[in-house]
Amino acid sequence: MAKLTTRTTSYGGLLMFVAALAAVVIAIYDFVNTGNGIAYSYGAGLVLVVSVLILLGALVMVFLWNKPAWLSGILYVLLLLGILGNGFAAYMLAAYWLAIAMVVALIGWFVHATIDASEEERAKEAVRKEVLS
């Protein structure tokens, strides 16, 4: 049972989701915190928007299981690009907490892509779980 539970839990995806959520909070703070050098700048707005998109992407990636394969593939690519781009943008904005959040999200992406069970496996596990229950 324990093994089954492990296989169905997307730790990497969750990590990515949590990091993206933190990124959104940080980006909002950076955007409105007058005096930080980047408040209300296009750059601060850009990383806020991208952080929200990463959060949405992670949400779909982790919690929507029955996605078509092509959608999963696109999401993987877009999330990777989004995380890398947002991390670089955060670095250029000297928004270092945001950059750290993106590093964590990137780790989550890697874990999700390489260690977490695939969607197919997770779907099968879910079925088995249901059958066993």
């Binding site: 700048s41 750059g43 904005l93």
Partner: peptide, 8 residues
């Protein structure tokens, strides 16, 4: 140099 908030 800073443009759009980005530091060069």
């Amino acid at each position: 140099v800073q443009k759009y908030g980005f530091y060069m």
